[in-house]
Nucleic acid binder design. Structure first.
Lengths: 328, 328
DNA sequence: CTGAAAGCGCTTACAG
DNA sequence: CTGAAAGCGCTTACAG
C-alpha cells in the first residue's frame, strides 16, 4: 500500500505538501502537477482510517433498518444514498431483524465506527432507545416514528388512514373491516387504527370487534386476518377491508378470491404503501403513496445540515397521496 | 469522547493493559474487572478508526450494487448481511446507478476505506474492471457474472433459460417470442438468450426476428417489447412470450391484457427471478427462482474464507428452480 | 508557498 | 501478568 510518505519522497516534497494538494491548501502549480502525476501513476488514495482518526470525520453515515429486504426500506435507502453520495458520503448498513435491542447495539457500534450521523427507520419508541440516541451525541434522524427529542420525518398515518376510510365511505361502504398491527408500533399500529376508528365514529358507522384483526405485516398474516374476519362475521359480512399495509391487503385479497368473493363487487380492499405490486394486482389495489424515497432524501438532507451545524430538533410530516384503483 | 487513555488513567493501569482486556491478552482477574467496570460506567467503546489504522482491518465489507431498490439486490444484501453480521462485520453500501465507471470508482474508494473485502453484483465484464479488481488486491467476490480471475457466484442462466423454453415447448407451444436485454450483460443478455435460441434450434422450432425484442429490465420496457412483438407479427402471432426478467414479463402481461388477449389461453408468459410479485399476479407468473439470498450468503462465506486465507479463484454455480404457475 | 513537529487512539513486539 | 515505546497514515497549527 502506498502512503503519503511514499508520494512525498517520490515527489521530493514534505508530506505536508502532499496532504495540501488533497485538501485545497496553497500549493504552487508545478509542485501540484508533479505530485498529481505520481499519485496517478501509483494509484494512491489516502487512507480514510488515518484521515478519520485525525479529523474525527469519516464520510460515512450509518443507517439502521428493521429489515433490509423490504420495499419500503430499499426505497428509503435509495433516497438517502442519492443525496449523500453526491456529497461523497457512503452508507454503513445495519439490519436489526426487527429486534429492538439491536437498534441500541447498532447505535453504539456506529458511534464507535465514527460515523458522521445516523438515520434510523424506527419501528417503536422506548426509553432505552431515546437514551442511547442522546448518549451517542451524533446528528440523528428518525424516520417513521415521532421520537421525543429527535428530529423525525413522519408519515401522516392518522390522516392517511382517515382519508382512506373516508374514500371507502364515499364509495357507499358502511361496513368496513380493518387489518392492523400491534400497538408497539405507534405509527402503523396506533395512528392508522385511530384514523380508521375516528372516521367511523364521525360518520356514525358501526365499529364491530369481529371486523378488526391484527396481523404482523406479512402477506400470510393478511390472509389469516381476512379469514378470521369472514368466518367471525358470516351473518354480517363487511363490504370492505382496510389493511394498514399493502402486503396484508394482498394476503386478504388472496383469501377473498379463494373463497369466491369478487373484488370490489362483493368486498372492496385497500392498503397503504403503494408497493410496486399494488399496481399490478388484479384488480389493482387502492392504496396510499408515502413517497418513501423522498422521505429518505429529506432525512439525508436534514442529517447533512445537522452535521454542518447543530439544530434544534424538528418534526417533519411527509405528504402522502391517495391512489384510487379498481379494488374499491 | 472517552479514549483508551482515559480508561487507563481511571483504572490506574497502562493503556496496554486496557487494550489487552479487549483483545484477549493475559490480564489478571481483578484488573480486568476493575477495567470493565469503568468501561461500563463510561460507555467506552474503542475507536474503530484507530484500531483499523493500526491493524489494517476494518471489520467492514464493501458491497457494490447496480441499483439499491431492486428486489434481487435487496435479497442478496440480506443474505450477505445475515452471514457477515454474525461475525461482527458491517456492510458499506455503494450504488452505481448502473454506470460502469462507478464500479471502478467504488472499488478504489472502498479500498481506501480499508474494507476487508468486496462483493460486487456484476452487470458487465470489461478489462478496466478486471484491472481495478486485481489492483485492489483485496478478497473479492463477484455475483452474477463470470469475471476472469475473480471468484464468482454464477446463476445458471443458460440452463435456466433452456429449461424454461423447454417447459413452454412441453406445453405445446411452437411459436415462442423472447424479450431480452442488451448483450453488454453477458449473463442476462447473452446466456439467457443462448438458452432460448439453442432450445428452439434443438427442437426444430422457428426462430423469427419479429418475435425477439430487447428491453432494459423495466416493467415499461416489457410492455413496449410485447407491443412491438404483437404489432410486428400480426399475421403470425406467437403463442408464448418468454421474458428474461419478471418485471419485463409483468409489463408484457399488462400489454396483452389491455389488448384483450387472455393469458395463458391466447398467449402464455414466463419470466425469471421469482419476484414476490410473480406469485400474486393474475394469473400467477411462471418463473425461475435463483435463490438470490443464498447467493448472497454463499458470497459472504467465500469472502470471509478468503479473508482468513487467500484461495485460488473459483467459480460456483447456484442451483435454480423452475416454478410453474398458471401463466403457462 | 513550504516544512518540521505534534498528535489523533489504538496495538504489538519487547522487556521485565 | 504488566508497562514503555514505537508506529499505523494522516492533518493542522505554527513558523518561516
Amino acid at each position: 500500500m502506498t502512503t503519503i510518505n511514499d508520494i512525498a519522497k517520490m515527489a521530493n516534497v514534505s508530506r505536508t505538501t502532499v496532504s495540501r494538494v488533497f485538501n485545497n491548501g496553497y500549493v504552487s502549480e508545478d509542485v501540484r502537477k508533479r505530485i498529481m502525476k505520481i499519485v496517478e501513476e501509483t494509484g494512491y488514495t489516502p487512507s480514510l482510517s488515518a484521515k478519520s482518526l485525525r479529523t474525527k470525520k469519516s464520510g460515512v453515515i450509518g443507517v439502521i433498518l428493521p429489515k433490509i429486504s423490504t420495499e419500503t426500506a430499499s426505497r428509503v435507502v435509495s433516497g438517502i444514498n442519492e443525496v449523500v453520495a453526491k456529497e461523497n458520503f457512503q452508507i454503513l448498513l445495519t439490519d436489526t431483524e426487527l429486534k429492538k435491542e439491536k437498534e441500541i447495539e447498532y447505535i453504539r457500534l456506529l458511534k464507535s465506527r465514527h460515523v458522521d450521523g445516523i438515520i434510523l427507520l424506527a419501528t417503536n419508541i422506548n426509553a432505552d432507545l431515546i437514551k442511547a440516541i442522546s448518549a451517542a451525541d451524533l446528528p440523528f434522524i428518525s424516520i417513521g416514528q415521532d421520537l421525543p427529542g429527535v428530529t423525525s420525518i413522519l408519515y401522516d398515518d392518522y390522516h392517511a388512514a382517515s382519508d382512506l376510510t373516508n374514500l371507502l365511505v364515499a364509495n357507499h361502504h358502511k361496513k368496513i373491516a380493518f387489518i392492523g398491527v400491534g400497538e408497539e408500533d405507534p405509527s402503523v399500529g396506533r395512528q392508522r387504527k385511530m384514523g380508521y376508528l375516528d372516521t367511523l365514529a364521525k360518520t356514525n358507522l358501526p365499529i364491530r370487534e369481529e371486523w378488526i384483526e391484527e396481523g404482523d405485516f406479512s402477506i400470510e398474516s393478511g390472509y389469516e386476518c381476512a379469514k378470521k374476519i369472514i368466518r367471525n362475521s358470516e351473518k354480517n359480512l363487511p363490504t370492505a377491508i382496510f389493511a394498514v399495509t399493502d402486503r396484508m391487503a394482498i394476503g386478504a385479497m388472496e383469501y377473498l378470491r379463494e373463497q369466491g368473493y369478487s373484488i370490489p363487487q362483493d368486498i372492496a380492499v385497500a392498503g397503504i404503501g403503494a408497493s410496486t405490486m399494488s399496481k399490478h394486482l388484479t384488480p389493482p389495489l387502492t392504496t396510499v403513496d408515502y413517497y418513501n424515497k423522498d422521505a429518505g432524501k429529506k432525512a439525508a438532507q436534514l442529517l447533512l445540515a445537522q452535521m454542518v451545524q447543530k439544530k434544534d430538533k424538528e418534526k417533519y410530516t411527509q405528504t402522502y397521496r391517495l391512489i384510487k384503483r379498481d379494488s374499491v
